[in-house]
Design a protein around this nucleic acid. Structure first.
Length: 881
RNA sequence: GGAAGCAUAGCGCAGCUGGGAGCGCGCUCGCCUGACUAGCGGGAGGUCAUGGGUUCGAGUCCCAUUGCUUCCACCA
């Protein structure tokens, strides 16, 4: 062997070295290859200036597993990587950085600011991709994209123009969600409703011309009173019929406003009288439209009261609220203040309470585009895993509202709309128009706004492949196969990709959407900056290795469920890596000492060899099946159990005597089996733990280039050995029985003992005759005698009943008859229960007639087995009594 | 106000299409057995939230209840 494995498993150094090798060999690079079937995943682009967190680690690990699996299966796999410009997040960061340097964003202006932003992007943009590489991500970095690069920007512009020309994009003055801190509009999806303890302020509005008479309204936002243009009651409300049409004096303003009737008002809620502020409440906005009420905007962009607010002008909205409540109290118009819990819309990025405002904004009309997206789910061309997330998707689409896409930011795709300086005509075009089609003027000004970040992310699955050009890549890799993401992003991203793709390409962007949950801390709390409970994946990688981190993220986790992360779990994963490492070392040590045949005649294998070969064969089928179903957790659990339990704890131990005995004629069979089974197990494990498997594989197979381009194990009938599987299981059963007896009797492991196997069945005897070699190493037996009767076994031997046979261990000086009887009674009790259960089932006519025949036969076989064992136990008890 | 998810061993979880309750950690007893103490062998520990139903058979399917979590929603 050319190379040797280090004595202990240490991921440090090893992982970076291997990753570099993969890069050098361009294994991640996908090309259009008509001879192969494509398999494509686009990465959910992380924020370009972001930092890798556990959520990414989980998301990317899942994608990498699927990609590596498919690559080994022979697909041309493209994992399309890239980053997102993350408009608000980046703009905020750059603004802050400039402020630290004493630079004011507004002073330097748009162009200068963008220079700084791009410089920032160049400096920090590579950070997160480098962190992904630490994880082992086998993405095609040669195709890395950025949502604001030339191609993606071209796609954005194209889509905007197409939708505009189709009438799906329009500009309108409507009430939108305004973030006073970020100073931009935001979409409905970006508004997070949080519970807050607030108050209901009951305020009297005097009725004009009726001295001493009032209308009592209740509001949670008294400061908006300044923008009231009516008070509404329900038209059915008998209490207030007489008020409809009357004028009220709006306190603190001197204005007069009418009482109107609108069915929007709930008679039961509050006082039944609602102040209407069309400019600062979405419902009131609608009411205002219905009744042609004036819209009075009383706030500046930073949510301070504007000049229309009289003495309150300049105050912050909350400051104004306090001042106004005081003033109302003084005027005797404040009736009462009642505590009231309600939901307040906040900006998901900065947690500022959003202020509804009327502003001219660009919108995407959603009703028509939602239809095919709904249809795609219903006809199955788009499927969620787990399925339940499809309901969330449908619900959102069926209740979708127009999407506000303009943002008052600089960092992003600028809206390709131009306004004529003379007549104000709007021209949407790929570049600045030369001449106004309306007035002939030649001077235009481009719209100042940029697009919502999600507008470009929505095009990601095809913009990255060259769309709108019909590139060979687009033709070959699109539609993509599966999208892997968290449930928190379904509305923002998944839905928008689906309708955008259907609209622009006529195809779904992906066939499956694999949804995973959140990674929480050990106590199940959300990881957050404020709690300080976030676990840095890079620190985990540094301490335990990327393989251990990846395994931890994949074990014991069902699709769509949240998972709790703890260092204890990573330790367990690392221990497994060490187990794999050392088992491999052991095998290679032995391979060095002898020649292993390239080809093996399966007939030359022993029962144990066939057993483990059969097991790894089944394992390949099961792992493949579960990966195909996206059951990544179940698949890896099976690999884990196989390697640790079956392969290491049983097979390797069984095979040791053959390795140590120079005369053994089956030695090369053992070595071949060890090598073959290890190789297959490594391959099945590779998608999960790419580094350690690569290191071992290449050491084991110096002639091979890399495990990641080796062939995925396929189930083969030639490796199916059902009989040997049964036999070895029986032998394991016997070994366990021996170990049990020894522990029960407190026999030191160093003390070897004789073992007698008694069975009347000659077939069983010959099986144990062949398997008895294992009793020595695994059961600390000094000698094993397989015989048909109890000849030569004293009454003072301890016994254990197993199916088809009884084991006797003579421990003359140690035997405690009482204890032995106790053991047998316990066994009798267990068998009695089992027999009762089986008899109950078989005694039930309806079970016999209705249950599948295979099940009935299975139970009959059990009955026979337990009956036989019971006879043995009883005979033994009678003998001791 | 709607909707979804979860409830299984002390802790963290798996159990996919119904057919004898599992994994990891922890605990406990015994072992330095020539790959591994990041290990090996044995063990204790569960009325599968509660109550009904379907079925020959339910942790698994259906209904209701309780508790926790989450998402959606314009009751001022």
């Amino acid at each position: 062997m050319a190379k040797e494995l280090a004595k202990t498993y240490d991921p440090k150094g090893l992982e970076d070295r291997i990753y570099q090798k993969w890069l050098d060999n361009h294994y991640f690079h996908a090309t259009v290859n008509p001879d192969k079937k494509p398999f494509t995943i686009v990465i959910p682009p992380p924020n370009v200036t972001g930092q890798l967190h556990m959520g990414h680690a989980l998301d990317e690990t899942m994608q990498d597993i699927l990609i590596r699996f498919k690559r080994m299966q022979g697909y041309e796999t493209l994992w399309q990587p890239g980053t997102d410009h993350a408009a608000i997040a980046t703009e905020v960061k750059v603004t802050e950085k400039l402020r630290e340097q004493g630079i004011d964003k507004d002073e330097i202006g748009r162009e200068e600011f963008l220079k700084h932003a791009w410089a920032w992007k160049e400096e920090y943009g590579g950070k997160i991709t480098n962190q992904l590489k630490k994880l082992g991500a086998s993405a095609d970095w040669e195709r890395e994209r950025f949502t604001m690069d030339e191609g993606c920007s071209k796609a954005v512009q194209e889509v905007f123009i197409r939708l505009y020309e189709k009438g799906y994009i329009y500009k309108g003055s409507r009430i939108i969600n305004w973030c006073p801190v970020c100073q931009t509009s935001i979409s409905d999806a970006e508004v997070e409703h949080v519970d807050q303890d607030g108050f209901f302020w009951h305020i009297n509005y005097p009725i004009v011309g009726e001295e001493g008479k009032f209308v009592e309204i209740a509001t949670t936002r008294p400061e908006t009173l300044l923008g009231d243009t009516a008070v509404a009651v329900n038209p059915e409300d008998e209490r207030y019929q007489h008020l409809i049409g009357k004028m009220l004096e709006l306190p603190l303003t001197g204005r007069q406003i009418p009482v109107i009737a609108d069915s929007y008002v709930d008679k039961e809620f509050g006082t039944g009288c609602v102040k209407i502020t069309p400019a600062h409440d979405p419902n009131d906005f609608e009411v205002g439209k219905r009744h042609s009420l004036p819209e009075i905007n009383i706030m500046n962009d930073d949510a301070t009261i504007n000049e229309l607010g009289g003495k309150y002008a300049g105050m912050d909205r909350y400051e104004a609220r306090r001042a106004m409540v005081e003033d109302l109290k003084e005027l005797g118009l404040l009736v009462k203040v009642v505590p009231h819990a309600h939901n307040v819309g906040t900006h998901d990025r900065c947690k500022t309470t959003v202020e509804p405002m009327i502003k001219p904004q660009w919108f995407v009309k959603m009703d028509e585009m939602a239809k095919p997206a709904i249809e795609a789910l219903k006809d199955g061309s788009l499927q969620f895993v787990p399925e339940r997330f499809g309901k969330i998707y449908l619900h959102w689409l069926e209740n979708i509202r127009d999407w506000c896409i303009s943002r008052q930011l600089w960092w992003g795709h600028r809206i390709p709309a131009y306004y004529c300086d003379e007549c104000g005509e709007t021209v949407v075009a790929r570049e600045m128009p030369k001449i106004c089609p309306k007035c002939g003027c030649t001077h235009f000004t481009q719209d100042e706004d940029t697009l919502d970040t999600w507008f470009s992310s929505a095009l990601w699955p095809f913009s990255t492949l060259g769309w709108p050009d019909q590139t060979p890549e687009l033709d070959y890799f699109f539609p993509t196969d599966v999208l892997v993401t968290g449930y928190d992003i379904i509305f923002f991203w998944v839905i928008r990709m689906v309708f955008s793709s259907l609209e622009q390409t006529g195809k779904v962007p992906f066939h499956h959407v694999l949804i995973h949950g959140l990674v929480r801390d050990a106590q199940g709390r959300k990881m957050s900056k404020s709690l300080g409970n976030g676990i840095d994946p890079l620190k985990i990688i540094d301490e335990f290795g990327a393989d251990a981190l990846r395994l931890t993220l994949m074990t014991g986790n069902a699709p769509g469920n949240d998972m709790n992360f703890s260092n204890e779990r990573v330790t367990a994963s690392r221990n497994f890596a060490n187990k794999v490492w050392n088992a491999s070392r052991f095998i290679m040590m032995n391979l060095e000492r002898a020649r292993v045949p390239e080809e093996m005649d399966l007939a030359a294998l022993t029962g144990a060899d066939k057993w483990i070969l059969s097991k790894v064969n089944t394992l390949a089928a099961e792992v493949t099946e579960n990966l195909d179903k996206y059951e990544l957790g179940i698949a890896v659990q099976k690999v884990y159990d196989f390697i640790w339990d079956e392969f290491c704890d049983w097979y390797i131990e069984m095979v040791k005597p053959r390795l140590y005995n120079e005369e053994d004629t089956t030695k090369s069979a053992a070595l071949w089996t060890l090598k073959t089974v290890l190789t297959n197990a490594l391959k099945l494990l590779h998608p999960y733990m790419p580094f350690i498997t690569e290191e071992i594989f290449c050491t084991l197979h110096p002639e091979e280039e890399s495990i990641m381009i080796s062939a995925w194990p396929v189930y083969q009938e030639a490796w199916n050995f059902a009989r040997e599987e049964r036999e070895v299981e029986a032998i394991k059963e016997a070994v366990r029985a021996i170990r049990n007896v020894r522990t029960d009797m407190n026999v030191a492991p160093s003390k070897k003992a004789q073992v007698f196997v008694v069975s009347e069945n000659p077939e069983v005897r010959s099986m144990f005759e062949e398997g008895k070699v294992f009793f020595a190493t695994l059961g600390s037996a000094s000698s094993v005698h397989v015989q048909a009767d109890k000849a030569g076994i004293g009454d003072d031997a301890i016994s254990a009943v197993i199916p088809d046979a009884v084991l006797y261990l003579p421990f003359a000086e140690l035997v405690d008859i009482e204890k032995e009887i106790e053991r047998l009674k316990k066994e009798e009790e267990r068998l009695t229960k089992e027999l009762a259960r089986v008899n109950g089932m078989l005694g039930n006519e309806r079970f016999i007639s209705k249950a599948p025949k295979a099940k009935v036969d299975e139970e009959k076989a059990k009955l026979e087995k337990y009956t036989q064992m019971m006879e043995q136990v009883k005979a033994r008890l009678a003998q001791l009594a």
